[in-house]
Write a protein that binds this DNA or RNA. Structure first.
Lengths: 414, 414
DNA sequence: CAGTATTTTTTCGAGGCCCGAAAAAAGTCT
DNA sequence: AGACTTTTTTCGGGCCTCGAAAAAATACTG
């Protein structure tokens, strides 16, 4: 049963609304906020002057861009970049990348490092993460506010509470409780998120016109991942980060998947699967882990050159994706799709068979009208998604809660 | 962007909360409501005395069931059955059934009629519906309040706004705007809902302990339908009623489905598909429309008698369902499933292959732990779901809105 | 260049709503 | 009959939002 609305929640929610409006719109005036939120001018005036006094917002001379119209000029509100910082970290196969982000979303420090995630112990993996975050924090100017949030994106599955990495292709170890460990070491609230979910969040911030209420981000890489936004909300599983599109069944009893099962979409469309098919290996042969991006580029070149096993491999991949998307569409109705990652660079090879397959499904009825988009570089997208996730948390959980919570959060780094 | 919270919304939402608490709990005291909603005693007292004054709630001597404890006895609150009525109608193949339901959810009048939906014109179909509802309303005692809502459940797909039946297996006609027509004729707000979604809603009211935040209702009948509740909310498509589980793809390019495509789950697990396989007909042969429930019972008997094409047909059906559910679980994580309808009566024949298939999917990892339930009679379930849907609408949209809206809604039937 | 028009922002009083504490109510127990 | 216990109502205080009006800041205009 949903809880009752207490009187103080009102202010909290409306504060959150104002902060969100500023974060979204860039440089909105009070009047603009009033109209987008539906609250009265007086309320917006009161809330925004509070937020300015508390240091989250600042007024800027909008001037320049607004053509000088008649009447009192609008004064634009903006986020104060120094109001807070957050930390984002992206853990992927053999690579950890992290950054400190200011309250406006701009990075103030970053670091990236390669090591062999597949062979490290659980302990070593966690230590590398902690060490990198510590280095980043050590580099912060003294007196700067301590980061208020860590968001760690991982390939693979995290639990619904976003605290544990349940499984990941990058390591043989399971159930790594990153959130507990990082909170214990650094005393900063932490969540562990699926990388594809973060991609979806980032897409919405990048292009809200295109990616708004319903859309899908599909990562085509060594494995296949998905982030799904439905009715304006990130869709996650009930017990895990969910949305394991790559492990929907394409052909019962079919090709061997990295997950050990047979016939998953990924077993046809993951890099290793395309590579396997292109080399005419048996579908039962175990997934090759060492397929590199360069391998795949070479494969794509050969496929573009003309008919052959390479082109056939891409065709099979496209078919698997197309039918998978068709089944998904049967459940949620069609939505725009962004294909992200290395595989998106070979999208020209995939698209025809995706569309053919999709058109043969109930969900893909009007498959011509379904728009695809490709974004080859996934890392910047994931990082941006993490940043926005972390900042929205700060907005809603801390800054919206009122002056007290804001005060308490303001501890300077050592 | 979500709208701001205006001051009056507060009371509206808390009124809705109190009404919902009474509807759910049966005979709660004010104290009990205060604790389940988290609102203060004073607020509950104020709201409930308003609601009693306005006629939605009534006090009853709880007495009997509460063992006389020390202290002032609790006064139980209850819904006033005369506060309102709603109309439910269920349209399925060759059958229309409708009822008038009081504010407590009890039927006060009902009617059921058979006619040949498949051969009727669009116009005739609509007229039959209107006629039945008019007859029901004509039978109401004069002075009784006019029904405040019609919920029509249909097999097939309705639009996201729940106003148009986009497609249904019961008729060749498409895009029947039932809501517009019924509202035009009877001047009662109407929604058109998918039957399986209503089943899911009913399950939650029937057994909230088992079917709470995440569960699935699958209708096994001539076709295959699904109602899905995720995180406590009915899951619908973005443009339609959605959740077309039956048309997820089981085998690309496989058996011919009633929808005209190939390889859908329904093309293996719908009654017609089981019948087709049991009679060793080609998978390309067009779906037989005239398979009756008795046919299916006979088929099930033969399948139970021993190995043979009938048992094999059920096995294929179970496999299709199992893999389909596995793909679904990959997206949403496992949840309890209720199998409803004629096919549930033959669930003993399906379950082994469902479980075998499910165990071969990523989503079905712990398939032993996933619980199945069977409910052979779908119609009562659908009707109950419609009733609760309609009543919750009245609760939230009319009675929660305040005395004015309540007044305006109170028009006696002619 | 002073006055007018226009638009944005702030101020102020009114009306609601929720909460906590205290009081009242309605029984049981001794 | 009085003490005790639990439920429900009453009352005053504190917030919050709103609408209207005032103030502020600038462009237009003759």
């Amino acid at each position: 049963m949903s809880a009752g609305i207490r009187h103080d929640d009102l202010r909290r929610r409306n504060r959150a609304l104002v902060i969100a409006a500023v974060r979204r719109s860039g440089l909105p005036s009070r009047t603009e906020i009033a109209s987008t939120t539906g609250l009265s001018h007086s309320t917006i005036s009161a809330i925004s002057s509070d937020l300015i006094a508390e240091g989250m917002l600042a007024e800027t001379k909008a001037g320049e861009h607004a053509t000088a119209r008649r009447g009192r000029p609008q004064v634009a509100l903006t986020l104060n970049p120094k109001a807070a910082t957050v930390i984002v970290a992206v853990l992927s196969l053999n690579c950890l990348s992290a950054a400190i982000i200011d309250y406006c979303g701009e990075p103030v420090a970053e670091e990236q490092r390669a090591f062999s995630t597949a062979t490290m112990s659980k302990h070593e993996l966690v230590l590398e993460c902690i060490a990198m975050l510590r280095r980043l924090m050590a580099g912060m100017s003294p007196g700067a506010p301590k980061p208020l949030r860590i968001v760690l994106a991982v390939q693979g599955i995290s639990d619904a509470a976003a605290r544990v990495m349940l499984w990941s292709p990058i390591t043989p170890h399971r159930d790594i409780a990153f959130a507990d460990v990082l909170e214990g070491e650094l005393a900063i609230p932490t969540t562990v998120e699926n990388d594809c979910n973060m991609m979806a969040i980032a897409l919405r911030w990048r292009d809200p016109a295109r990616y708004r209420d319903n859309f899908i981000a599909i990562l085509l890489s060594h494995g296949i991942g998905m982030g799904l936004v439905i009715k304006g909300e990130l869709f996650t599983g009930t017990q895990s980060s969910g949305g394991e599109f790559g492990h929907m069944i394409h052909r019962p009893g079919g090709a061997l998947c990295r997950c050990g099962r047979r016939g998953c979409v990924e077993a046809y469309a993951g890099d290793y699967a395309i590579w396997r098919n292109a080399h005419l290996k048996n579908e039962d042969s175990p997934p090759e882990d060492a397929v590199t991006n360069t391998d795949m580029q070479a494969l794509a070149e050969r496929a573009r050159a003309g008919e052959g096993p390479e082109r056939e491999a891409y065709r099979k991949a496209g078919t698997a994706i197309g039918y998978g998307v068709g089944s998904l569409f049967a459940l949620i109705d069609p939505a725009p799709i962004a294909f992200v990652g290395g595989g998106a660079a070979a999208f020209d090879l995939l698209e025809p068979s995706i569309r053919t397959a999709l058109a043969r499904t109930a969900g893909g009825q009007h498959s011509d009208a379904i728009s695809f988009d490709t974004i080859p570089a996934e890392l910047p997208l994931i990082r941006q998604g993490c940043a926005m996730r972390a900042l929205v948390f700060v907005d809603q959980e801390i800054f919206a809660a009122g002056p007290q919570a804001v005060q308490e959060s303001r501890i300077a780094v050592a």
